[in-house]
Simulated scan of single mutants.
Amino acid sequence: MKKSSVGISIAIIAVLVAIIGGAVYHTQKNNRFVHSTTATLFFHGGGSSYHAETGMVNAAKKAGVTNTVIRADVTNNGKVTLHGNMHRGAVNPIVEVNYENNRQLDFNKHGEYATNVVKMLKKRYGINKINMVGHSLGNISIIYYMLRNGQNKNMPRLEKQVDIAGHFGGLTFNGIPDALKQPAGLKLDSNGKPNYMNTTYKQMTAARKAYPKRQVAVLNIYGDIGNHTDGRVTNASSRSLQYLVASRAKSYTELKVTGKNAQHSKLHDNKQVDQALIKFLWQRRK
């Protein structure tokens, strides 16, 4: 065989090996994750937008979870407009929710906004199962969605919930209405029940009956940069979610993140948080 022919043969074999190897890697990568039509909704924090969700979403895309990401814009009066391409049956679709009024402090409105987004997804794409991820004020959308719909069999079923930097027990900085302030001397018992409750937390305790029994798996992620706070929200306030949902949840897990990137507004761009999200929401169970 001539040297040129040998060289061509070696080149062809090398290309085939690369193609086959790439295909095997891609298959193994995709097999790490469930292949589901369950839609995962991301809710941003106060004064923010869907851009704050991009880091977490891009981490999921890069890992091979999904190729389908759309945005749901919600106006102050609750009108929903969807942007992007998605088809019925899309695998592990992600919805970045974007509120026009990103400082809405009427928490019932958050429940209304989230409900309208879910209704639109069901109507347009036939979505009947969802996951929800919230950061800071975005966690309120999840709780108040469930206060409205937790026992409604006609709404899509919430499968998994991830709360990041939640302020369920209240906030401590100036300018916050009394109904949202964290009571002084807040402490939790072994079940996460606060010794003092503000008006809003008392309202949220209805979740203890609104959540369906043993349906929703909950992951509660909070940051500690020192002194049991993420710099904006105390750990006690974040961890008081336990009392609201754990007795009804399929599972309830807490994850404390430490270090400088555990600061409140950095948690949604934290690689440890990204990895925890991907594992909890989409990784196949062995």
Score class of each variant (00 low, 15 high):
K260Q: 13
H264S: 02
L267F: 11
K271R: 14
T253Q: 11
S251C: 01
V273Y: 06
L267D: 05
G259M: 12
K271I: 09
K266C: 02
H268W: 06
K256F: 10
T258V: 14
K279W: 03
K271V: 12
Y252P: 06
N270I: 10
E254L: 04
N270D: 13
K286S: 14
K250N: 07
V273S: 07
S265C: 00
N270C: 06
E254A: 08
K266Q: 14
H268V: 11
H268C: 02
K256C: 14
S251Q: 09
W282K: 03
F280D: 01
W282L: 02
T253W: 00
L255D: 05
D274K: 10
H268P: 01
L255Y: 07
V257T: 08
H264G: 01
L277R: 07
K286L: 11
V257W: 09
T253V: 12
A262K: 12
I278C: 03
F280E: 04
G259S: 13
K260D: 12
K260A: 09
F280W: 04
Q272G: 12
Q283Y: 03
N270G: 04
Q263E: 15
E254S: 06
Q263K: 12
D269M: 14
R284P: 05
Q275F: 01
L255N: 03
L255Q: 12
S265Y: 05
Q272T: 15
L255I: 06
A262S: 11
E254F: 07
K260L: 05
Q275G: 08
A249L: 06
A276R: 08
G259F: 11
N261Y: 15
L267V: 13
I278M: 03
S265H: 06
K256P: 09
D274P: 00
K271W: 08
K260R: 14
Y252E: 01
F280P: 04
H264F: 05
A276C: 04
T258A: 12
Q263G: 06
H264Q: 04
H268I: 13
Y252H: 04
Q275D: 15
K271A: 12
N270F: 07
N261F: 11
T258M: 11
L255V: 07
K250C: 06
A262P: 08
R284V: 09
V273E: 10
F280M: 09
R285T: 11
L281P: 06
D269T: 15
V273H: 10
Q275Y: 05
A262D: 10
K260G: 03
L281F: 02
Q283F: 00
Q263R: 14
D269N: 09
D274C: 00
V273G: 10
R284I: 02
I278Y: 10
L255G: 00
Q263F: 13
